[in-house]
Design a protein around this nucleic acid. Structure first.
Lengths: 195, 195
DNA sequence: GTCTATAATCAGATAGAC
DNA sequence: GTCTATCTGATTATAGAC
Protein backbone atom coordinates (compact mmCIF):
# COMPACT_ATOMS: atom_id res chain seq x y z
CA UNK A 1 0.00 0.00 0.00
CA UNK A 2 1.24 3.43 -0.87
CA UNK A 3 -0.39 5.40 1.90
CA UNK A 4 -1.63 3.33 4.82
CA UNK A 5 -1.85 6.36 7.07
CA UNK A 6 -5.16 8.12 7.58
CA UNK A 7 -5.65 11.71 6.51
CA UNK A 8 -7.91 14.50 7.74
CA UNK A 9 -10.89 15.52 5.65
CA UNK A 10 -10.29 18.37 3.18
CA UNK A 11 -12.77 20.73 4.78
CA UNK A 12 -11.94 20.23 8.42
CA UNK A 13 -11.58 23.56 10.17
CA UNK A 14 -8.04 22.94 11.38
CA UNK A 15 -6.87 22.18 7.88
CA UNK A 16 -7.71 25.71 6.80
CA UNK A 17 -6.16 27.09 9.98
CA UNK A 18 -2.91 25.35 9.11
CA UNK A 19 -2.91 26.71 5.56
CA UNK A 20 -3.51 30.22 6.92
CA UNK A 21 -0.58 29.86 9.29
CA UNK A 22 1.69 28.48 6.59
CA UNK A 23 0.84 31.35 4.31
CA UNK A 24 1.64 34.00 6.88
CA UNK A 25 4.89 32.21 7.71
CA UNK A 26 5.90 32.05 4.07
CA UNK A 27 5.19 35.73 3.59
CA UNK A 28 7.04 36.76 6.75
CA UNK A 29 10.03 34.43 6.66
CA UNK A 30 10.17 32.58 3.35
CA UNK A 31 9.35 29.04 2.31
CA UNK A 32 12.26 27.54 4.20
CA UNK A 33 10.64 28.72 7.42
CA UNK A 34 7.50 26.74 6.66
CA UNK A 35 8.25 23.69 8.80
CA UNK A 36 5.67 21.48 10.43
CA UNK A 37 6.64 22.75 13.86
CA UNK A 38 6.50 26.43 13.07
CA UNK A 39 3.26 26.13 11.13
CA UNK A 40 1.69 24.33 14.06
CA UNK A 41 3.00 26.87 16.53
CA UNK A 42 1.54 29.74 14.52
CA UNK A 43 -1.76 27.87 14.19
CA UNK A 44 -1.70 27.06 17.92
CA UNK A 45 -1.95 23.38 17.17
CA UNK A 46 0.31 20.38 17.71
CA UNK A 47 3.06 19.80 15.08
CA UNK A 48 1.88 16.30 14.36
CA UNK A 49 -1.40 17.63 13.06
CA UNK A 50 0.35 18.93 10.01
CA UNK A 51 1.16 15.36 9.08
CA UNK A 52 -2.35 14.30 9.80
CA UNK A 53 -3.89 16.79 7.37
CA UNK A 54 -1.12 16.66 4.76
CA UNK A 55 0.89 13.70 3.56
CA UNK A 56 4.04 15.81 3.74
CA UNK A 57 5.18 19.38 3.46
CA UNK A 58 4.89 19.29 -0.32
CA UNK A 59 1.20 18.62 -0.08
CA UNK A 60 0.82 21.59 2.24
CA UNK A 61 2.64 23.84 -0.23
CA UNK A 62 0.41 22.58 -2.97
CA UNK A 63 -2.73 23.28 -0.96
CA UNK A 64 -1.48 26.79 -0.18
CA UNK A 65 -0.79 27.56 -3.79
CA UNK A 66 -4.05 26.18 -5.10
CA UNK A 67 -6.17 28.12 -2.64
CA UNK A 68 -4.41 31.39 -3.53
CA UNK A 69 -4.55 30.70 -7.24
CA UNK A 70 -8.27 30.00 -7.22
CA UNK A 71 -9.01 33.14 -5.22
CA UNK A 72 -6.82 35.16 -7.57
CA UNK A 73 -8.68 33.92 -10.62
CA UNK A 74 -11.91 35.27 -9.20
CA UNK A 75 -10.37 38.63 -8.37
CA UNK A 76 -8.97 38.83 -11.88
CA UNK A 77 -12.29 37.87 -13.44
CA UNK A 78 -13.92 40.82 -11.68
CA UNK A 79 -11.07 43.11 -12.78
CA UNK A 80 -11.48 42.03 -16.40
CA UNK A 81 -15.18 42.84 -16.35
CA UNK A 82 -14.49 46.46 -15.34
CA UNK A 83 -14.77 49.22 -17.96
CA UNK A 84 -10.97 49.60 -17.89
CA UNK A 85 -9.52 46.09 -17.77
CA UNK A 86 -5.96 47.18 -18.58
CA UNK A 87 -5.82 49.69 -15.75
CA UNK A 88 -7.33 47.09 -13.44
CA UNK A 89 -4.73 44.49 -14.47
CA UNK A 90 -1.93 46.98 -14.06
CA UNK A 91 -2.97 47.69 -10.46
CA UNK A 92 -3.57 44.01 -9.86
CA UNK A 93 -0.06 43.16 -11.08
CA UNK A 94 1.69 45.69 -8.90
CA UNK A 95 0.45 44.35 -5.55
CA UNK A 96 3.53 43.76 -3.34
CA UNK A 97 2.19 40.95 -1.13
CA UNK A 98 1.19 38.87 -4.14
CA UNK A 99 4.61 39.44 -5.66
CA UNK A 100 6.44 38.25 -2.55
CA UNK A 101 4.43 35.04 -2.36
CA UNK A 102 4.89 34.55 -6.08
CA UNK A 103 8.68 34.63 -5.86
CA UNK A 104 8.63 32.18 -2.98
CA UNK A 105 6.51 29.73 -4.94
CA UNK A 106 8.67 30.14 -8.02
CA UNK A 107 11.83 29.33 -6.11
CA UNK A 108 10.09 26.36 -4.48
CA UNK A 109 8.81 25.14 -7.82
CA UNK A 110 12.27 25.17 -9.32
CA UNK A 111 12.83 21.83 -7.69
CA UNK A 112 9.37 20.33 -7.28
CA UNK A 113 7.81 18.94 -10.38
CA UNK A 114 4.21 18.72 -9.19
CA UNK A 115 4.14 22.29 -7.92
CA UNK A 116 5.81 23.50 -11.09
CA UNK A 117 3.08 21.93 -13.20
CA UNK A 118 0.40 23.43 -11.00
CA UNK A 119 1.87 26.92 -11.24
CA UNK A 120 2.20 26.62 -15.01
CA UNK A 121 -1.39 25.44 -15.27
CA UNK A 122 -2.80 28.39 -13.35
CA UNK A 123 -0.47 30.95 -14.93
CA UNK A 124 -1.67 29.87 -18.37
CA UNK A 125 -5.28 30.21 -17.24
CA UNK A 126 -4.65 33.73 -15.95
CA UNK A 127 -2.99 34.69 -19.22
CA UNK A 128 -5.70 33.12 -21.33
CA UNK A 129 -8.46 35.09 -19.66
CA UNK A 130 -6.43 38.30 -19.75
CA UNK A 131 -5.80 37.85 -23.45
CA UNK A 132 -9.44 37.32 -24.27
CA UNK A 133 -10.50 40.44 -22.38
CA UNK A 134 -7.72 42.64 -23.71
CA UNK A 135 -8.19 41.68 -27.34
CA UNK A 136 -11.30 43.79 -27.63
CA UNK A 137 -9.69 46.77 -25.91
CA UNK A 138 -6.84 46.76 -28.42
CA UNK A 139 -9.24 46.35 -31.30
CA UNK A 140 -11.32 49.32 -30.16
CA UNK A 141 -8.12 51.40 -29.90
CA UNK A 142 -7.27 50.50 -33.49
CA UNK A 143 -4.26 48.35 -32.65
CA UNK A 144 -4.35 45.27 -34.86
CA UNK A 145 -2.84 41.89 -33.96
CA UNK A 146 -0.07 42.41 -36.52
CA UNK A 147 1.16 45.46 -34.64
CA UNK A 148 0.66 44.03 -31.15
CA UNK A 149 -0.94 40.61 -30.56
CA UNK A 150 -3.11 40.71 -27.40
CA UNK A 151 -1.17 37.86 -25.81
CA UNK A 152 2.08 39.80 -26.28
CA UNK A 153 0.52 42.81 -24.61
CA UNK A 154 -0.19 40.61 -21.61
CA UNK A 155 3.27 39.08 -21.53
CA UNK A 156 4.80 42.56 -21.59
CA UNK A 157 2.52 43.98 -18.94
CA UNK A 158 2.96 40.99 -16.65
CA UNK A 159 6.73 41.10 -17.05
CA UNK A 160 7.12 44.78 -16.38
CA UNK A 161 4.81 44.94 -13.41
CA UNK A 162 6.36 41.88 -11.82
CA UNK A 163 9.92 43.11 -12.18
CA UNK A 164 9.10 46.61 -11.00
CA UNK A 165 7.43 45.35 -7.84
CA UNK A 166 10.22 42.91 -7.19
CA UNK A 167 12.94 45.50 -7.63
CA UNK A 168 11.04 47.91 -5.48
CA UNK A 169 10.95 45.36 -2.67
CA UNK A 170 14.71 45.07 -3.08
CA UNK A 171 15.10 48.80 -2.63
CA UNK A 172 15.88 49.56 -6.27
CA UNK A 173 14.47 52.54 -8.10
CA UNK A 174 16.59 53.20 -11.22
CA UNK A 175 14.30 53.68 -14.18
CA UNK A 176 11.12 52.93 -12.28
CA UNK A 177 9.49 56.36 -12.41
CA UNK A 178 10.26 56.69 -16.13
CA UNK A 179 8.90 53.21 -16.85
CA UNK A 180 5.73 53.83 -14.89
CA UNK A 181 5.24 57.00 -16.84
CA UNK A 182 5.70 55.32 -20.20
CA UNK A 183 3.37 52.44 -19.35
CA UNK A 184 0.69 54.73 -17.98
CA UNK A 185 0.96 57.03 -20.98
CA UNK A 186 0.26 53.99 -23.15
CA UNK A 187 -2.64 52.88 -20.96
CA UNK A 188 -4.16 56.35 -21.20
CA UNK A 189 -3.95 56.14 -24.97
CA UNK A 190 -5.82 52.83 -24.90
CA UNK A 191 -8.33 53.29 -22.12
CA UNK A 192 -8.27 56.97 -21.23
CA UNK A 193 -7.78 58.39 -17.76
CA UNK A 194 -8.12 55.83 -14.95
CA UNK A 195 -11.35 56.06 -12.97
CA UNK B 1 33.30 40.57 21.84
CA UNK B 2 31.01 39.94 18.93
CA UNK B 3 32.96 37.25 17.16
CA UNK B 4 35.67 35.57 19.24
CA UNK B 5 35.90 32.65 16.87
CA UNK B 6 38.66 32.49 14.27
CA UNK B 7 37.89 32.50 10.60
CA UNK B 8 39.70 31.13 7.53
CA UNK B 9 41.48 33.52 5.22
CA UNK B 10 39.43 34.80 2.25
CA UNK B 11 41.67 33.27 -0.39
CA UNK B 12 42.24 29.84 1.09
CA UNK B 13 41.72 27.16 -1.51
CA UNK B 14 39.02 25.31 0.43
CA UNK B 15 36.99 28.45 0.77
CA UNK B 16 36.54 28.62 -3.00
CA UNK B 17 35.86 24.88 -3.12
CA UNK B 18 33.02 25.36 -0.64
CA UNK B 19 31.52 28.21 -2.64
CA UNK B 20 31.67 26.08 -5.80
CA UNK B 21 29.86 23.26 -4.05
CA UNK B 22 27.23 25.58 -2.59
CA UNK B 23 26.55 27.06 -5.99
CA UNK B 24 26.03 23.71 -7.66
CA UNK B 25 23.78 22.63 -4.80
CA UNK B 26 21.69 25.77 -5.06
CA UNK B 27 21.29 25.32 -8.79
CA UNK B 28 20.39 21.65 -8.52
CA UNK B 29 18.19 21.64 -5.43
CA UNK B 30 17.44 25.20 -4.35
CA UNK B 31 18.69 27.38 -1.54
CA UNK B 32 17.02 25.32 1.17
CA UNK B 33 19.28 22.42 0.19
CA UNK B 34 22.36 24.50 0.88
CA UNK B 35 23.12 23.23 4.39
CA UNK B 36 26.56 23.03 5.92
CA UNK B 37 26.58 19.24 5.73
CA UNK B 38 25.51 18.95 2.14
CA UNK B 39 27.89 21.65 0.99
CA UNK B 40 30.74 19.91 2.77
CA UNK B 41 29.75 16.55 1.34
CA UNK B 42 29.72 17.93 -2.19
CA UNK B 43 33.07 19.62 -1.59
CA UNK B 44 34.46 16.44 -0.02
CA UNK B 45 35.30 18.26 3.16
CA UNK B 46 34.13 18.09 6.77
CA UNK B 47 30.89 19.96 7.63
CA UNK B 48 32.57 21.97 10.34
CA UNK B 49 34.82 23.62 7.80
CA UNK B 50 31.87 25.58 6.52
CA UNK B 51 31.71 27.27 9.90
CA UNK B 52 35.41 27.84 9.88
CA UNK B 53 35.36 29.73 6.60
CA UNK B 54 32.00 31.43 7.07
CA UNK B 55 30.47 32.86 10.22
CA UNK B 56 27.17 31.27 9.29
CA UNK B 57 25.18 30.18 6.29
CA UNK B 58 24.23 33.78 5.51
CA UNK B 59 27.84 34.71 5.01
CA UNK B 60 28.25 31.80 2.61
CA UNK B 61 25.23 32.95 0.60
CA UNK B 62 26.67 36.44 0.52
CA UNK B 63 30.03 35.19 -0.74
CA UNK B 64 28.30 33.12 -3.43
CA UNK B 65 26.29 36.04 -4.65
CA UNK B 66 29.17 38.49 -4.67
CA UNK B 67 31.45 36.19 -6.65
CA UNK B 68 28.76 35.60 -9.29
CA UNK B 69 27.83 39.25 -9.47
CA UNK B 70 31.41 40.38 -10.02
CA UNK B 71 31.99 37.80 -12.73
CA UNK B 72 28.71 38.80 -14.39
CA UNK B 73 29.72 42.45 -14.47
CA UNK B 74 32.79 41.55 -16.47
CA UNK B 75 30.83 39.41 -18.89
CA UNK B 76 28.37 42.24 -19.35
CA UNK B 77 31.12 44.80 -19.87
CA UNK B 78 32.46 42.70 -22.76
CA UNK B 79 28.94 42.32 -24.17
CA UNK B 80 28.38 46.07 -24.05
CA UNK B 81 31.56 46.71 -26.00
CA UNK B 82 30.38 44.54 -28.90
CA UNK B 83 29.08 46.21 -32.08
CA UNK B 84 25.55 45.04 -31.20
CA UNK B 85 25.15 45.62 -27.46
CA UNK B 86 21.37 45.16 -27.47
CA UNK B 87 21.54 41.77 -29.16
CA UNK B 88 24.30 40.79 -26.76
CA UNK B 89 22.25 41.86 -23.73
CA UNK B 90 19.22 40.05 -25.04
CA UNK B 91 21.16 36.78 -25.29
CA UNK B 92 22.79 37.46 -21.95
CA UNK B 93 19.41 37.97 -20.30
CA UNK B 94 17.89 34.77 -21.61
CA UNK B 95 20.43 32.39 -20.09
CA UNK B 96 18.49 29.75 -18.08
CA UNK B 97 21.15 28.90 -15.49
CA UNK B 98 21.59 32.55 -14.52
CA UNK B 99 17.83 32.92 -14.26
CA UNK B 100 17.47 29.94 -11.92
CA UNK B 101 20.18 31.21 -9.57
CA UNK B 102 18.65 34.67 -9.74
CA UNK B 103 15.24 33.49 -8.55
CA UNK B 104 16.84 31.56 -5.70
CA UNK B 105 18.72 34.62 -4.52
CA UNK B 106 15.64 36.80 -4.84
CA UNK B 107 13.60 34.48 -2.67
CA UNK B 108 16.44 34.30 -0.16
CA UNK B 109 16.82 38.06 -0.15
CA UNK B 110 13.15 38.54 0.65
CA UNK B 111 14.03 37.87 4.24
CA UNK B 112 17.69 38.83 4.59
CA UNK B 113 18.43 42.49 4.74
CA UNK B 114 22.15 42.36 4.02
CA UNK B 115 21.75 40.16 0.96
CA UNK B 116 18.90 42.31 -0.27
CA UNK B 117 21.09 45.41 -0.13
CA UNK B 118 23.89 43.60 -1.94
CA UNK B 119 21.60 42.44 -4.74
CA UNK B 120 20.15 45.93 -5.13
CA UNK B 121 23.63 47.42 -5.25
CA UNK B 122 24.81 45.13 -8.03
CA UNK B 123 21.56 45.25 -9.96
CA UNK B 124 21.78 49.03 -10.06
CA UNK B 125 25.36 48.81 -11.32
CA UNK B 126 24.33 46.42 -14.08
CA UNK B 127 21.53 48.73 -15.12
CA UNK B 128 23.70 51.82 -14.99
CA UNK B 129 26.27 50.38 -17.36
CA UNK B 130 23.60 49.00 -19.66
CA UNK B 131 21.92 52.38 -19.82
CA UNK B 132 25.13 54.22 -20.71
CA UNK B 133 25.92 51.79 -23.52
CA UNK B 134 22.41 51.68 -24.93
CA UNK B 135 21.89 55.43 -24.95
CA UNK B 136 24.12 55.86 -27.98
CA UNK B 137 22.48 52.98 -29.84
CA UNK B 138 19.06 54.59 -29.43
CA UNK B 139 20.42 57.95 -30.43
CA UNK B 140 21.94 56.54 -33.62
CA UNK B 141 18.62 54.89 -34.44
CA UNK B 142 16.87 58.23 -34.09
CA UNK B 143 14.94 57.37 -30.95
CA UNK B 144 15.08 60.30 -28.60
CA UNK B 145 14.81 60.12 -24.79
CA UNK B 146 11.34 61.66 -24.93
CA UNK B 147 10.07 58.72 -26.96
CA UNK B 148 12.00 56.04 -25.05
CA UNK B 149 14.48 56.90 -22.30
CA UNK B 150 17.47 54.50 -22.42
CA UNK B 151 16.92 53.40 -18.83
CA UNK B 152 13.34 52.44 -19.66
CA UNK B 153 14.56 50.39 -22.61
CA UNK B 154 16.74 48.46 -20.18
CA UNK B 155 13.97 47.98 -17.62
CA UNK B 156 11.70 46.63 -20.36
CA UNK B 157 14.29 44.32 -21.86
CA UNK B 158 15.38 42.98 -18.47
CA UNK B 159 11.79 42.39 -17.42
CA UNK B 160 10.71 40.59 -20.55
CA UNK B 161 13.76 38.36 -20.82
CA UNK B 162 13.60 37.42 -17.18
CA UNK B 163 9.94 36.51 -17.22
CA UNK B 164 10.21 34.59 -20.48
CA UNK B 165 13.08 32.45 -19.20
CA UNK B 166 11.35 31.89 -15.91
CA UNK B 167 8.08 30.85 -17.49
CA UNK B 168 9.91 28.62 -19.91
CA UNK B 169 11.54 26.81 -16.99
CA UNK B 170 8.05 26.35 -15.57
CA UNK B 171 6.89 24.72 -18.78
CA UNK B 172 4.82 27.66 -20.00
CA UNK B 173 4.76 28.82 -23.58
CA UNK B 174 1.65 30.98 -24.14
CA UNK B 175 2.66 34.13 -25.98
CA UNK B 176 6.38 33.38 -25.92
CA UNK B 177 6.98 32.90 -29.63
CA UNK B 178 5.00 36.03 -30.46
CA UNK B 179 6.85 38.08 -27.85
CA UNK B 180 10.24 36.86 -29.05
CA UNK B 181 9.25 37.86 -32.54
CA UNK B 182 8.17 41.33 -31.54
CA UNK B 183 11.28 41.99 -29.46
CA UNK B 184 13.61 40.72 -32.15
CA UNK B 185 11.83 42.72 -34.81
CA UNK B 186 12.49 45.80 -32.71
CA UNK B 187 16.14 44.84 -32.16
CA UNK B 188 16.59 44.40 -35.91
CA UNK B 189 15.21 47.87 -36.43
CA UNK B 190 17.76 49.26 -33.97
CA UNK B 191 20.84 47.18 -34.63
CA UNK B 192 20.17 45.27 -37.82
CA UNK B 193 20.48 41.51 -38.23
CA UNK B 194 22.35 39.77 -35.39
CA UNK B 195 25.90 38.69 -36.23
C1' DG C 1 46.52 29.13 10.13
C1' DT C 2 43.71 24.79 9.50
C1' DC C 3 40.70 21.44 11.00
C1' DT C 4 37.87 18.00 14.42
C1' DA C 5 35.00 16.25 18.34
C1' DT C 6 30.98 17.23 20.29
C1' DA C 7 27.01 19.87 22.03
C1' DA C 8 22.33 21.64 21.57
C1' DT C 9 18.53 22.14 18.77
C1' DC C 10 15.19 21.20 15.34
C1' DA C 11 13.33 18.48 11.32
C1' DG C 12 9.89 15.14 9.20
C1' DA C 13 7.38 11.18 9.92
C1' DT C 14 4.48 7.25 12.02
C1' DA C 15 2.27 4.02 15.16
C1' DG C 16 -1.05 4.04 18.16
C1' DA C 17 -4.40 6.37 21.77
C1' DC C 18 -8.79 8.62 22.25
C1' DG D 1 -12.74 10.87 12.50
C1' DT D 2 -9.29 13.56 15.34
C1' DC D 3 -5.19 14.03 17.72
C1' DT D 4 -0.63 12.66 20.63
C1' DA D 5 3.69 10.24 22.28
C1' DT D 6 7.72 9.25 20.38
C1' DC D 7 11.41 7.74 17.06
C1' DT D 8 15.14 8.74 13.93
C1' DG D 9 17.89 11.59 11.63
C1' DA D 10 19.62 16.27 10.12
C1' DT D 11 21.29 21.09 11.21
C1' DT D 12 23.88 24.91 13.06
C1' DA D 13 27.36 26.20 15.87
C1' DT D 14 31.30 26.24 19.23
C1' DA D 15 35.28 24.93 22.03
C1' DG D 16 39.35 23.08 21.57
C1' DA D 17 43.11 19.97 19.16
C1' DC D 18 46.73 19.92 15.70
Amino acid sequence: MVSPRRIGSPDAKNRAVLIDAAERLMLEHGYAAVTSRRVAEKAELKPQLVHYYFRGMDELFMAMFRRRAEAGLEVQARALKSPQPLWALWRFGTDPADAALWSEFIALANHRKALRAEIAYYAERYREEQTKAVASVLERAGIGPAELPPVVAMVLMTSVSRVLVLEDALGMSAGHAETFELVERYLRRLEGEPA
